[in-house]
Design a binder for these strands. Structure first.
Lengths: 190, 190
DNA sequence: TGTACATCAGTGAACGCGCGTTCACTGATGTAC
DNA sequence: TGTACATCAGTGAACGCGCGTTCACTGATGTAC
């Protein structure tokens, strides 16, 4: 039954990826270890050959989820020049596509209130990701001082996270859309 | 064992209040019906004499939690005149006191990502609350058109919700504080 | 290079536990006469 | 106003279920000689 080191490492990576998706879609609490393992084509018992606890997986899933989002921000920015790159990031994030696809979306928006109650390790991973996102955005904001750019990026990102969270909660489709529109407009006008 | 109608109504109100607190503090999923009832000085079985299901309680707790926040916004606004009333709302919401007291705080910040996965009834209650908050804020934003004021209020509230959520996640105390500071500054400068 | 053995990835049943919900019961409240 | 009875708020045990975690086991991989 034993698998090679390479296979085991791949399995581990796969569990983390599936977890990152399920946690964002259904929530951390609502996603069980057995479900996760079965989605990875394994049985529940093997989980603890890869992770010390579910909490550890949560931290790692949060970490890789954030890293992928940071990359997506960089990609969105690179595809456009100077002034437009900030708008490109906002457009991608504050979108109906993002709202309707929590699976591959932002962990901070998908599991925000659960992360606030998570352990130190997980919150540290989320914090790191938040800072990285802010850095990428600040680099694409034209301001006299780097401090002013960073402060503005923090403000913008908070609004973006709040916008996606609210747009997912709001029942009326028009109101949900208008939240995304309003936030996008004000961020673009900054 | 039967209690009078007045007593029963009071019990019901108490269960909702306790639920509203616990859901914001520990999350909806993590708060059990039995725990809730025991905090209300009752046993679990009696729960279904007051509510059809836990989901129904979640919706009602969300509704009353939002209603109280709307009142708090109005109070904060009334205590200050004209231009300052908007700033007063922001100051109260985007504060370390709010960050550290989820129990009595904003349901949208305290259970945001869980609300996004809640049933129609609960999300409708949250939506109603969000709209009410926006209305109060818009009334205290000096803008040519009501539409512009409303759009600005939506943007501001999204940023406020995102700010509190992130400040609760972030591990480093200074960074957490600076998120609140940055968002407050930019909102005041609007 | 070939053999003997230790390692350990993965299995699947089992652990105790808390979940949301149901149910037969109790006895004070509310109501009909 | 007083009596007889129906109502129903609250009790507490029990339901099936899924949770995170543990464990003895299997057998291919990795390693030491």
């Amino acid at each position: 039954m034993r698998k090679s080191k390479a296979e085991a490492a791949e399995t581990r990576r796969q569990i983390i990826d599936i977890a990152a998706q399920e946690f964002r879609l259904n929530g951390i609490h609502a996603t069980g270890v057995a479900t996760l393992m079965s989605k990875a084509g394994l049985t529940n018992g093997g989980f603890y050959k890869h992770f010390e606890s579910k909490d550890q997986l949560v931290a790692e899933a949060c970490s890789t989820g954030m890293a992928k989002l940071v990359d997506a921000f960089k990609t969105a920015a690179v595809e456009h020049d100077g002034n437009e790159s900030f708008k490109a990031i906002v457009k991608r994030y504050v979108s109906m596509v993002h709202r309707d696809n929590a699976v591959g979306g932002c962990p901070l928006a998908g599991m925000g209130s659960e992360l606030a109650r998570a352990d130190e390790q997980t919150r540290a991973a989320a914090s790191q990701g938040f800072n990285d996102l802010v850095d990428v955005m600040a680099a694409h904001i034209g301001r006299r001082s780097p401090d002013a750019a960073r402060s503005e990026a923090v403000f913008a990102l908070a609004a973006m996270i709040g916008a996606i969270t609210m747009s997912r909660i709001i029942t009326d489709p028009d109101t949900s859309k208008s939240v995304l529109r309003d936030v996008t407009q004000h961020l673009n006008a900054m």
